[in-house]
Each structure stands twice: as C-alpha cells, then as structure tokens.
Design a protein around this nucleic acid. Structure first.
Length: 868
RNA sequence: GCCCGAAUGGUGAAAUUGGUAGACACAACAGACUUAAAAUCUGUCGCUGCUAGCGCGGCGUGCCGGUUCGAUUCCGGCUUCGGGCACCA
C-alpha cells in the first residue's frame, strides 16, 4: 500500500468505480424506502462557485448516508439554462447564447463530477432544450384552457437596463433585482398566471410542511399576505364631464371597520381619479399631485419621508352617519394596494393621528379600553388595540368589541348596498411574459382575423432558433422571418408568432418532477414521478425562500388539478444553506476610488492575540485596509475558485472543510488555514491506515480485551454515537469532529499490539462514517485494508452497547452546584453508596466544616451535588 | 414599526436540550527533528488573584432580574447585530 496520500489518483479511481458499477443510477427497488435528495440546480454561468460546492456537498452527504442505510436514492442534476446572462455574454462576445450555455454546461459538469457527487446523470436535463420546454408550453396551454393563464394589459415594472418586464417580486426597493436600475412604469400586454386563485391553499398548506424552516414559512405567509377587512364606499355626487366619477362611490378598504364612527376625513392616492379631478380646478392640489409623482421615485427617501397632504375641497358622505367628510390627497396612500384610498381615523391609527395633528384635522375617539384615558395631545399605544377595545361614541355600536362591531357594521353596509366583508391578498398574479430572446417561446400565434390563437398541441414545441446573436437592441426574434411567419391554425391565413418568452422561473417550477419521471414516454411526467415525489430533502440558498419555492408550490398544485401528479406539495423537507463569506481587502486610490485586492495577494497583520488589525500586499509590502467579511463577489475580488482548491488539495479536502467549518444553515467564513487543517487530517488518516496495513491485522479477538483496549473501544463507540446523533440533525461539523476524535484516540493508543483488534474495528467504523463526507479516501482505504470491495455497500455503523458499558464510573462532584472534584464508583453502586462516597470526599468535608449536608442530589451516571 | 434568527476564548465553533462551559479545529507561543527551511511530532493556550514551585482560589456564555440543589439552556425585562416585510389601510 502506498505510504502517502495522493488525492488525484485515488479520486479518479473511486469515481471510475462508481461510474462502472452504476452506483447512483436511480431505480425503483421493492422493499426499500425511497429517498429523493435534490439540490437546487445551477445556472450555467461558466464555472462553479463556493456556494455550489457547499450546496452539492450537503446533498451528496445526505444521499450517500441514506444509500448506506438501505434507501434507494435519487440524486439528479441539471441546468437552469435560460436567462439573461447568456444574452449579455452574447452581446459581449458575439457568440449565440445557446453555444455559450452549452459550453458552460460541459465545463461545469466536469467540475461537478470531479467533486465525486453521487448523481444519476442519465436524468440530466437542461431547461433550454426543446424536449424540456415543450412541456412549459403544453402546460401553459392547459392553463389558458382552465382560465389560470390569461392575457391582460397592465402597468408593469419595466427594467430600462435589461429592457424587460419584471414581476413585482423581482422589484426590490424600486429597482430591478438583477440590474439595480430604477424601475419605470409602462403599459404593455402580457400573459399572467393566476397564482392568486391558489392563494388560500398556498397559505393553508404551509401547515403541511413541518420539515420546512419556520422563517421560510413565515416569509411565504407574509408574502401571500392575507388580511380580513371590509370594503365599503363613501357616496358622493362629484362629476366630471357630466358623469359621476366612479359611479358616485369612493371605495376604501379597511381592517378596522370597528373604528368607522371615528372617521374624520378620507385620504386618496395622488393617482386617484378624485385627486386628478381636484387638481384641475385647484393649483395647490395640482402642485402636490405633481410633487408626489416625482418624490415617489426616490425610494430611499420614502421610508423616512414626512407624511404630507393637501385638502381637495371635495366632500363625500359617511355611509353610516351621513356626515360630510373631507377628501385629502396623502403621499402615504398607495394606488397599487386596495382601492387607492383609505378612511382616516386619527384617534385609532398612528399614521392618521400624525397627519391630523399636522393639519389640525378633528380627532374623534370611537374606541376605549377600560382604565385608560384618551387624549388628543399625544399618541398612545392602546389607541390601536383591537384586542381590548370596545366601541364608544358610536351610536348603536357602543359597547361592542372588535369582532362584534365589524360584523354589525359590515352587515349594515351590505344592507345599504355600500360594502361588505372582503379578504384582501398582498399576492398578485404572476406576469410571465418577457421581452427577451433566450427563453421558452410563448406558444401563441397572432392572426389578423382570429386574434390570439394557441398553438395546437401537435405543433409543439415551438422551437426557439439557437443561432441568434442578440445585439442589445430589443428581441432578435423580431428579425427572424423563419420563426416569426407562420399560418393561423384556425383559418390558415398567414400569421405571426408571439416573440415574448416565459419568465425563467417557469422553467424551475417543475424540473424536480421531470427528474423523477422515467423519460419513457412522450409526456410531461410519467408514472414514475409519483413514485419518487415528493422530494424528501430539498437543499438550496435562502435567497429562494419566496419566489422559486412559491412558484414551485403553485405549479405543483396546477399539475395536480390536471391529474398529472398526485401530491399537494413538492418538497417535504427543506434545508436552506448559509452563504459562503470571505475577507475583503481594499485601498483608497489617489483619485478617491476604492481598489480591492484578492485575499491570496494579501498578508494579514495580526496583533499579539491573533486579532486581525490590517493587512499588507505580498508583492511590495505596502499597507492596505481590512474591510471585514462579506459574501464572495466578483467586484470585491474576494471569491475563491473551487477548482483551484480541488486541484491543489483534492475534492475530499474541499468537501471535508465545507462540512467542518460551520453547520449547514449558518454562514460560512472562508479560511485558507482551515482548508489546510482539513487536508492535514486526511493525510494523518492515510498515514495511520498505511502503518496499520504494514504491521498486519492479526489478533482480531474482541472478546478478551485489556482495560486499555476497552477504554479505546469505548471512546470510538462514544464518538460514533455522537456522530450518528448529529448526522440525523444535519450537524455535519460535529460529525467531522467525532471522526477527528476517533483518529486522535487511535493515534494515541492504537499502535500497541494488544489493541489491534479494536483498531481494526475502529478503522472500519471511521471509514464508513467518513464515506458520505470524504467518499474517495474512504473508498480507497476500505479496499486497501481489505474490509471489502465497496464501502458504499457496507452497512452503516451503529454503536454497540457492549462497547459502551463501564465497570467503574467517574462522577462529577459538586458542592452547592460548583464543581469541587470527582469520585469513582462502581457502575452498579446504588444511591446511598454514592452519597456516602461523596460526603466522605475531602473537598466536601472541607465545605461541611463538621456539619451535615442539607441535601444530596445524585444524577445517575453524571454527577453528585451536595448542598451544605 | 412588525415577523424571524443570532450573540459563548485571538478565530470557526461544541455542549445529545436543566447537570464538568469552551469538545473538535484554526491561529499564536514554546520545544523536538533538520546544516537550514518546509513537512511532521510534542507541549501551552478564557480572564484573573495568591504562590519560587507543586498547587489553591475568584470571575466568566451580550446586559439586568427571576425560577432551581444546579441555568449557555427555562421565565420576565432590555441592548446590539443579521435576515425578511412594510406609509399594506
């Protein structure tokens, strides 16, 4: 056996072995439970980054661990291959997006394989291939038939840099989620998916997902945003051009209908028809409306912006009291939510209160809480309390609590035909049309006579030409006559194809079901899908907590309603892995800019305690600033290329460090020195195994062990017990530390001839334990030491009771809860014996000072606490 | 403001859920081997007081309080930092 650890050789040999034995080919096996382990598929950006390595290592550890425990496993991989970066690369390099994408896929696939991932590559998919996106189109047509998909013209978020429409979800603080450009409002036609039709179920079914992190469920629930309230109208007779505006009704929505008797004014958004009407005859209103339009663009200021408004001079009628109520324009009212108008109750809404104080509007109390005194001088927390409040100054509603008042008021409004209870959702329908080339074509044909005609199923897929080179000015499909021109399926006349493509979130909304399908028939999914689904463990970044996961859940429910699949929820368990961070180093340039330096060109300067105080450049020793720790990013030059790491240390070291540095859900701080530490462990393991192989493995009798051998064996099994416990809760960092403890113990006392039987057992445990994390070295040593042909086929180790028992226990001795020493007692000792031994201990005697203990507490197997 | 989550040595972290705080590592320091370096191995390593030393104490898990024989863990009240949501009516 080779004396030194050479990762290159053993890793390629192990990978060949898995390939030849088809070790990870997923097949239905009767009598075995299934385990579908899925990592979020990558976008083929060019090369793997550390986040990928972390994600896929976690998935592979779980896959291999389950395989060894008797599950039939499915771990697939594919490519989220449509999207903007390919078009941007095309513009920059004059290469078709298709070619760029396929080249990247080929390279990244090699990288994934070099990590030794146990993937069933026969199920590989790329979403840019017609045999995949055909089913996007097919399902889209089914949705059209069911009314789940529909076309409408709407104001959309327009990203001026990417020249595309963004979903509401893709707008962050008024900027495009990818480009960061300020979003403009535009009106264009597009297709929408009725995700709001499933809002109730998407919210309710979160309760069916105990294996999801609470915070992800909370984020989804917030996003769906269900609120119960009352929608009602203030009647008015304000006319424009002879006709009543909005049929003489100013609609508002409120969650606090119980405070309706406290209404002293109404506030409308600057874009509201009443505001527009008032602006025509009132310069002050016109100026304010204009100001709101400009200010509203400055998103950063909005959060801290002063609440401002202007009186329109218009009046509407209170629907219950008949009083005349003034209408104001408020910069805090949003046209996009509810009705674009709100009833204002200064006494019981903090925002309205501030507004009323500023403009000296009346404040009318309509809720009171026992023992509290109302004052219009300052806002108090209880004014908004709907738990304890009862109606006052509210006529017939006096004395009613929140729910009673809302019920009564809603009923009265309904009787007057002026309103009713309504459930309001924050969630909007999903606009899927994108004015981009590199995406799945929307299967629609525009005919001058017949209008928008769906492409018939037998003409699917509508294939996207793969040889276009976008030049940055609009969609290149507009210039492709061969794509554009077609005949109308209804009347046969010449017609034009839709050139919009689908949001790439469509592609990723069902790929997991496609993997699970056997690919045996020309169908979106086949019967094998229901065997593997739902995904038993889904692993990916927290950044997808809302969009991708919500869309996938929605898509699954649509597929279920079409009887394509039989599950309600696609992902039974979800693990959101933390980000990978690294140090940032920078320096101010002469011109006042900031220049960043990659960590490998920098030497850190530390103080005596080892704290980082600064840094200097390796090349010339000049001082630079240490900026702390941040996510790896191209612009800050603090990314680490996993390939360099694999080339230098091997895949096992990369995997081991990734698992050891932090628990999976926590952010991981990159440290080169930590990588070396992990590599050192593997070298030590190899060296120890090689020495053991040389000495030979005679004397394999575990039945008659010396006290030392028993102690060593117990240490091994204790560590194993801890490892198994931690494996089950995905705390892989302490699984690794258990493995390290085993090797430490073996190095300390494993070289004695008398311990050889224990060492032999220990190494077989250690190699099986490490096999999911560092599969290559485990595979190689398992064979070298003659344990068998394939460690993957070995049974997962479990600690033995016989190895854990002790004749004599060491108990911690406490006096008043403070540790004062320890006592040794026979394992069979009863409570009285232990108490006696404890009290007799000199440390206890010293504390007792001749007296007797008040109380003695014995925790079996752990400690004795003497209270004096 | 609301909803999550976190806070433990110089650093990453652990403590099997109320029972020896700091496991396992990294860094640092000292030593061995070496002509030397690298590699490797050994030792020290929370803060602090007394002691020449062996040792013997005190404090310590963001802060303040509580429950308990015993609290990193449970309860109440804060502080700070992450993440999400938000003029959402």
């Amino acid at each position: 056996m080779q004396q030194s650890y050479t990762p290159k050789d053993i890793e390629s040999a192990a990978q060949q072995h898995w390939e030849q034995t088809k070790a990870f080919r997923a097949v239905k096996e009767t009598g075995k439970p299934k385990y579908y382990c899925l990592s979020m598929f990558p976008y083929p950006s060019g090369k793997l980054h550390m986040g990928h390595v972390r994600n896929y290592t976690i998935g592979d550890v779980l896959t291999r661990w389950h395989k060894m425990r008797g599950y039939s496993v499915l771990q697939p991989m594919g490519w989220d291959a449509f999207g903007l970066p390919a078009e941007n690369a095309a513009i920059a390099n004059q290469v078709p997006p298709a070619q760029w994408t396929y080249d990247n896929i080929a390279y990244m696939k090699k990288q994934l394989q070099s990590l030794g991932l146990g993937i069933d590559w026969t199920r590989e998919i790329a979403t840019c291939k017609p045999d995949y996106y055909k089913w996007n189109q097919w399902l889209f047509l089914r949705m059209l038939e069911k009314g789940v998909a529909y076309k409408k013209t709407q104001v959309v978020n327009w990203d001026p840099v990417d020249q595309t429409v963004l979903a509401n979800e893709q707008v962050i603080d008024g900027r495009g989620w990818r480009t960061g450009a300020l979003v403009e409002k535009r009106e264009i036609p597009g297709y929408y998916l009725g995700i709001t039709q499933y809002a109730e179920e998407l919210l309710a079914d979160l309760d069916k997902l105990p294996g999801w992190p609470e915070r992800v469920k909370a984020m989804q629930a917030n996003w769906i945003g269900k609120s119960h309230g009352v929608r009602f109208a203030f009647p008015h007779d304000i006319k424009e051009g002879g006709a009543l505006i909005n049929d003489g009704k100013l609609w508002v929505y409120t969650t606090r209908a119980d405070t309706i008797m406290g209404v002293t004014f109404v506030a409308v958004a600057a874009e509201h028809p009443l505001a527009a009407h008032a602006a025509k005859g009132n310069a002050a209103v016109a100026a304010f409306v204009e100001k709101c339009k400009h200010v509203s663009v400055m998103e950063a200021d909005i959060a801290t912006m002063e609440k401002e408004g202007v009186d329109t001079g218009l009046k509407v009628t209170h629907p219950l009291t008949g009083e005349q109520v003034p209408v104001w324009v408020g910069n805090y009212v949003l046209m996009g939510y509810g009705e674009g108008a709100v009833m204002a109750v200064p006494a019981h809404d903090e925002r309205d209160f501030g507004f009323a104080k500023k403009y000296k509007l009346p404040i009318k109390q309509s809720i009171s809480v026992t023992g509290k005194t109302f004052s219009t001088d300052a806002w108090a927390e209880w004014y908004g309390d709907k738990e304890h409040g009862v109606c006052v100054n509210s006529g017939k509603y006096d004395g009613l609590n929140y729910q009673q008042a809302v019920d009564a008021i809603a009923a009265d409004l309904k009787a007057k035909n002026l309103g009713d209870k309504q459930v309001q959702w924050r969630l909007r329908d999903w606009g899927v049309s994108r004015q981009r080339y590199w995406g799945c074509p929307i299967p629609i044909i525009h005919c001058d006579s017949c209008g928008d005609v769906p492409v018939p199923d037998n003409q699917l897929p509508v294939v996207l030409p793969e040889d276009c080179v976008p030049d940055g000015s609009g969609n290149p499909l507009h210039k492709r006559a061969d794509f554009l021109n077609c005949t109308c399926p209804k009347c046969g006349k010449p017609a034009k194809r839709e050139t919009d493509t689908m949001d790439t979130f469509v592609d990723s909304s069902w790929y997991y079901a496609r993997y699970a399908s056997g690919f045996k028939s020309d169908a979106m999914v086949d019967s094998e899908t229901n065997h593997w689904m739902p995904v038993d463990q889904y692993i990916g970044g927290i950044e997808h907590a809302i969009l991708h996961l919500l869309y996938s859940r929605f898509w699954s429910k649509v597929m279920r309603d079409l009887k394509l699949v039989n599950y309600d929820e696609p992902f039974a368990n979800l693990l959101t892995q933390g980000m990978v961070l690294n140090h940032i180093f920078s320096r101010r340039t002469d011109k006042g800019g900031i220049q960043y330096f990659p960590p490998n060109e920098v030497e850190m300067v530390k103080d005596e305690g080892g704290r980082i105080t600064g840094a200097k450049l390796v090349s010339d020793g000049s001082a630079i600033d240490y900026q702390g720790i941040c996510t790896m990013s191209k612009s800050k030059l603090n990314g680490v290329d996993p390939q360099a790491l694999i080339d230098e240390y091997g895949a096992d070291t990369a995997r081991l460090f990734m698992m050891f540095a932090a628990p999976p859900e926590q952010t991981l701080e990159w440290a080169d020195s930590g990588v070396e530490g992990s590599h050192r462990f593997l070298k030590r393991l190899w060296a120890f195994a090689a020495e053991f192989a040389n000495i030979g493995k005679e004397a394999h009798d575990l039945g008659n062990l010396s006290a030392d051998a028993k102690t060593l064996r117990r240490e091994i099994h204790l560590a194993l017990r801890q490892a198994n416990y931690d494996m089950a809760r995905f705390q892989f960092n302490t699984v690794v530390s258990a493995a390290m403890k085993m090797l430490n113990a073996l190095e300390k006392s494993g070289k004695e001839a008398a311990n050889r039987a224990v060492v032999n057992e220990a190494l077989s445990i250690l190699l099986r334990l490490l096999s999911p994390i560092t599969p290559h070295i485990a595979h190689a040593l398992w064979r070298e030491l003659g344990y068998g042909d394939d460690v993957l086929a070995a049974q997962w180790p479990e600690p033995l009771e016989a190895a854990l028992v002790q004749d004599e226990l060491e108990l911690v001795l406490q006096v008043n809860g403070k540790m004062r020493g320890s006592i040794k007692v026979a394992a069979s000792a009863d409570k009285a014996t232990i108490e006696q031994a404890a009290v007799a201990h000199e440390a206890v005697q010293k504390q007792l000072d001749g007296g007797t203990p008040k109380k003695v507490i014995v925790v079996p197997g752990r400690l004795v606490n003497v209270v004096v």
